[in-house]
C-alpha cells in the first residue's frame, strides 16, 4: 500500500453520498504525478475509489467497467450499489491467493420501491471482505488519520453542501499528516439528479 501511496474516503449524507481521493502518485518516497485520481464513475449514481498499487487500480478500473457493462447488457438495467459491491467483492476474491493490492471504497444511491434514493457506502479489503458502514469508510495510507478526523467531524443527515465540507476537511486534514498522500484532492457528491465534482488544492507538499 505504501508503494504508490494515496487515500480514499466515502461518507453518507441526507439523501446523498460523497466520495473523494487525494491526487498523489508516488514511487515510494518519490512523487511521480500530482494528478492521479483514484475515484471513478461506475454508473450515474455509483462511484468507486481505489487506493493501493496504482497498476492494479488501473487494471481493476478496466475490469469493473467490463463487468458492469456485461451486467447492464445481460440484465437490461443499471446495476444497483449493493450488487456492485458484491461484484467488486467476488472480483477480488477470485484472486484470493495472489491478490490485487487495492482497497476499494464504494459510494452510491439506490432506488427504493417508493422511488426515492437512499445512500449506500461500502469498503472492502484487498481480498474482497466487504464492510457496509452507516457513516463513513476510509482506505489507503492515511486511513488511520482519516478515521480519527472523520470520527470527530461527521454527523448524521448532512445536507449535500455540508457533506461536501465535512468530507473535504476530513480528507485534507487527514492527508496533511501523511507523507504518502496529498497534493490536492478530488471530491464527488452524488445526488439523485446530478454529481457535484470539485478539485481541491491542499498543502501541495
Amino acid at each position: 500500500m505504501e508503494y504508490n501511496g494515496g487515500s480514499v474516503i466515502a461518507m453518507v449524507g441526507k439523501g446523498c453520498v460523497a466520495i473523494g481521493s487525494d491526487l498523489r502518485l508516488g514511487n515510494q518516497a518519490l512523487t511521480v504525478a500530482t494528478n492521479f485520481e483514484k475515484v471513478f464513475p461506475v454508473t450515474d449514481r455509483i462511484y468507486i475509489g481505489m487506493s493501493g498499487l496504482a497498476t492494479d487500480v488501473a487494471t481493476l478500473r478496466e475490469q469493473f467497467r467490463f463487468r458492469v457493462n456485461m451486467y447492464t447488457i445481460k440484465e437490461e438495467r443499471e446495476i444497483e450499489p449493493e450488487s456492485f459491491a458484491h461484484l467488486v467483492s467476488s472480483t477480488l476474491y477470485e484472486r484470493r491467493f495472489g491478490p490485487y493490492f487495492i482497497e476499494p471504497v464504494m459510494a452510491g444511491l439506490w432506488k427504493t420501491q417508493a422511488g426515492e434514493y437512499k445512500p449506500y457506502i461500502a469498503a472492502a479489503d484487498l481480498i474482497g471482505c466487504l464492510n457496509f458502514a452507516k457513516d463513513f469508510v476510509v482506505a489507503g495510507t492515511a486511513s488511520e488519520k482519516l478515521f480519527g478526523v472523520a470520527e470527530g467531524l461527521w454527523e448524521p443527515d448532512l445536507e449535500p453542501e455540508d457533506l461536501f465540507e465535512t468530507i473535504s476537511q476530513t480528507l485534507l486534514n487527514g492527508v496533511d499528516r501523511d507523507a504518502y498522500s496529498g497534493w490536492g484532492a478530488v471530491i464527488h457528491v452524488i445526488l439523485p439528479d446530478k454529481v457535484i465534482t470539485r478539485t481541491l488544492k491542499g498543502r501541495m507538499d
Binding site: 488519520k145 478515521f147 470520527e151 470527530g152 473535504s168 485534507l172
Partner: peptide, 19 residues
Amino acid sequence: AAQSLVQPFLDNQIYFKNQ
C-alpha cells in the same frame, strides 16, 4: 496509540488548518 487519529483532528479544530 491514537496520536495519528487525534492530531489531524486537532490541526483542524485548534490550528484551523485547511480553513
